[in-house]
Simulated scan of single mutants.
Amino acid sequence: MAILIETNTKPDRPYWLWALITIGIACAAFALADGRYGLIFETLLTGLGTTVLVAVCSYALALLLGLLLALASRSKTLWLRQAARFYIEIVRGLPALVILLYVTFVGAPLLINAYQWTAQAAIAAGWFPDVQVRDISNLVRGIVALAFAYSAFLAEVFRAGLDSIDKSQSEAAYALGLSRWQTFRLVLWPQAVRKVLPVLGNDFIAMVKDSSLVSVLGVNDITQLGKLYASSSFLTVETYNTVAALYLLLTVSLSLLLRKLEQHWRAKGYQKD
C-alpha cells in the first residue's frame, strides 16, 4: 500500500514578523508617551556606531582568518594541516569572554614586550616607533579577540562547504588547464559560498550580539552605555528595555536582509544550473 505524503512547498507567511512589528509599534508608542525612554534612547544611540564597528571589523577579520585556516586544514602539507587543526580545536574549546580577557590582558602585553625586545635597537635609532601597551586601545583588542574567537568556527564552516563539492569538478578544472588558484576562485569558491551563506549569516548575527562582550573592557558600546546610564539614573527597567530593543532591531533587520540575500543567491544559482 502506497502512502502519499503531502509536502508544503510554499513558504510560510511571516505572521511572526507582523506580530513583532505590532509589538514594536505598541512599545514605540508607549516609549514616546514616556519622556524617559527618549533620553535613554538618545544616550544609547551614541554607542550604536561602536557596536556596528566592532561587529563588522571583527567579522571581516574572522572571515579572512577562517578562510586561511580552512585552506590550511585542507593543505597537502602535514605540518600546516596539523597547525590549523591545533588552533581550531584550542580556540573552539574556549569561551569568547575568556579569549577576550586573554587577548586584552595577556596577549597584547606579551606581543608588545616581544616587539620591544626584538626591535630595541631599531627603536633606539628611531627607525621603529616606540609602542607601549597603553597605545593599543581596548576597542582594538576587543575586535582582535572576537575575530580570533569566531575564526575557528568559520574555518569549519568554510572547510565543510569546500569538502561538500564533488572532487570531479576539481579534476575537470585541472583537465581544462586551470591552476589550483583558478580552480578555487572560479569553480570551488562560488559554490562553497552559496552552500554556507545561511551559516555565515547566522554567525554574523551572533557576532552582533557577542559584540556586547567588549563592554567588560569599558568600550562604550550599547551595553556599556546602558550599564552606565542605569547605574547613574536608577532607571534599570527602562534602560535595559531600550538596550534589548536596539539589539533586537539590529538582529531582526539583519536576519531579514540575509534571508533576502540568500533567496537571491539561490535563485541566481538555480538559473545558472
Rank of each mutant, 00 (worst) to 15 (best):
F184K: 09
V157K: 05
R180N: 11
A173D: 08
F184Q: 10
N202C: 02
A152Y: 08
Q224L: 03
V193H: 01
K209Q: 13
N202D: 13
T183D: 05
D163R: 13
R194N: 12
F204H: 12
K167W: 04
T183I: 02
E171S: 02
S212N: 08
Q191H: 06
N220S: 14
L178W: 08
K167P: 05
I222T: 05
K167F: 08
L228E: 14
E171L: 12
G218N: 03
E171Y: 10
S168G: 14
V219L: 04
E156Y: 11
D210R: 12
S168M: 04
L217V: 10
S151N: 12
S179C: 08
R159H: 05
E171C: 00
P198M: 13
I165C: 04
A230R: 03
S151M: 09
L176G: 06
A172S: 12
A192G: 06
L178K: 04
W189P: 00
V187K: 09
I222Y: 06
A173G: 02
Q169N: 01
Q182T: 09
D203P: 00
N220I: 08
Y229P: 00
K167D: 12
A160W: 09
S164Q: 04
D221L: 02
V208E: 02
L197K: 10
V187H: 11
V216Y: 14
L162M: 15
M207A: 05
S212R: 10
M207W: 06
I165N: 07
E238K: 03
D166T: 05
L225H: 07
L178G: 13
L162C: 15
M207T: 14
G218A: 02
I205V: 15
L235I: 01
Y174A: 15
L228D: 14
L176D: 10
A173Y: 10
N220G: 10
L217K: 13
D166C: 07
A152M: 04
G201M: 03
I205K: 09
W189G: 04
S211I: 08
L188N: 10
V208A: 00
P190M: 00
A172K: 10
K195F: 12
V193E: 13
K227Y: 11
R194M: 10
S212L: 01
K167C: 06
K209E: 14
F153G: 09
E156V: 01
G226Q: 01
